[in-house]
Design a protein around this nucleic acid. Sequence first.
RNA 1: CGGGGAGUGGCGCAGCCUGGUAGCGCACCUGCUUUGGGAGCAGGGGGCCGCUGGUUCAAAUCCAGUCUCCCCGACCA
Length: 575
Amino acid sequence: MKLSNYFLPTLKETPADAEMESHKLMLKAGLIRKVTAGVYDYLPLGFKVLKKIEEVVREEMNNAGAQEIKLPIIQPAKLWKESGRWDDFGPEMFKLADRKEREFALGPTHEEIITDLVRNELNSYKDLPLVLFQINDKYRDEIRPRHGVMRSREFLMKDAYSFHSTQESLDKTYERMYDAYARVFDRLGLDWVAVEAPTGLMGGSYSQEFMALADEGGEEIVVCDDCDYSSNIEIARYEVSSEYSENSPAELKEVETPGMETVEEVANHLGIPSQKVVKTFIYRTDDGLVAALVGGDDDIEEMKLINHLGTKKAEMVSSQADIKAITGANFGSIGPIGLKDDIPVYADLDLKSLTNFTVGANKNGFHLTNVNWDRDIEDVKFINLRKVREGDRCPECGSELDFHKCIEVGQIFQLGTKYSDSLDGEYQDRDGNLNPYIMGCYGIGISRLIPAVIQQKYDSKGINWTGAVSPFSAALIVLGSEGEESFRLGEALYKELKELDYEVLVDDREVSPGFKFNDADLIGAPIKIIIGPRGLESGVLEVESRSGDKEELNLENKDVKQIAEKLGERISALG
RNA sequence: CGGGGAGUGGCGCAGCCUGGUAGCGCACCUGCUUUGGGAGCAGGGGGCCGCUGGUUCAAAUCCAGUCUCCCCGACCA
């Protein structure tokens, strides 16, 4: 491609509304432009990268035995109402109506549509298993789009769905998909890990996320040093502690804690470790109120509460008036003992071994101390409830857990029969009985992979493409002016390299040399081949890698074809 | 939805407090010179100062409302 007529509007100044480095670079390097919040134009360079990633994903999906299809973006509300997700997705879905006021959604994902397709066509166990995939735009009315295409409202995703008659068959496909994902992310040159993940709105029994490590990423994971345990922090398990257990229960006492609202104040007042002041939170769920208890130094991980309850929502009761009405006290003094209305009590696993601890008395200005399970509080369910924190140990092997920030680039799910049940997706087995398909689904955020890749490898000069992502294998920087020997050679080499299947960008613009060098670095060209009058005088071309390694290529006694071949070798070696 | 910030040529910003003919840098156009890490000189084009209303002789500037965008949080395959 010749830069003189390539639409590549690079920016010298950083756009004011970008925060994350990958977002700034995508704007500066002319990959994308914003249309409105969460909606972007892909310019030629950005679109080229997108297609590169798409192609890697497509190849690996095909290799894994998945068949490509294309499903509609406009989807009838009927199917979403059948599955129950018309309401579950709620305001996250872009909804629209046709002229007859029939309701539709712009697909945020495609489980409903594909289950509908398959239920009409696959009736026998002989047709299973089947794996279908598509690469298509998805629409979600994100509550807050951010960081460019990292979290946008229109985005490109590869989604695959598998249908099975047995769990073993699902396990096998799930594993094959895992392997395919591993190859995709390796080929893209990502530094990634797979972790146990919450299933969220997709539902299902087991799920893993593929995370690209990045300090500015919005997700957090824990990874064990020694064994292969790793998890999204929202569902992470931990080795349960018994640090604060004592043998003999002491006498339950009500103590005055006037005006004290924080754990710290109460702990100091009573002269006890803050972890022994147990915090109580009241949550409003689909099935009514629950109390949730964690140690004084801990925080609740709401995702864990939601998972354990099997509820769709759990909202902390956060208004003083409501909490007073429920417990009879203000926030600083609420506790699990003597709650009205048979509010079920869930406590974090770490608390189980706790003895002689302190809780709010549900009476302003008072706490109960020397509280013990069973004797003072009955029917408590102990669950993994608290946030994992620095210093926590692996639930599998006891080694220390590492914490990492990262970007979610893919997720795979064992869905089970959630959608086949609600949408009546059934096949007939060998005995003639009808059974729901056992399903899996597998997503890769294609558009999000662009910032993910950039985020891992950029430097002060710009983007630094890795692996199979680079839109061009080299920048051919032609110095001097039109009509000179350097331009003639540049043109000829460009043609030869194209013959040899190298995608080269020729900078034949009428701008100063510095401009060309900086743009080549900004857009992340893996190597620069510099053809200038100065080099030609001494019979050489300069070849410089993105990292700054330079070498010279002697032109003596070589024709254009031979030079191009030599350059090709350098491109293959350095790129 | 809660908290914070911002809307002034394509981009980055100043001007607003203290009302009086809209400015700077980059980019763009023309010409000449220049050509190895974002060139120089000269000339030029482009803005309903987000929108609506109000105050005033006069509003980018003051007041009210509204819309949009960004950041933090809630939320999120």
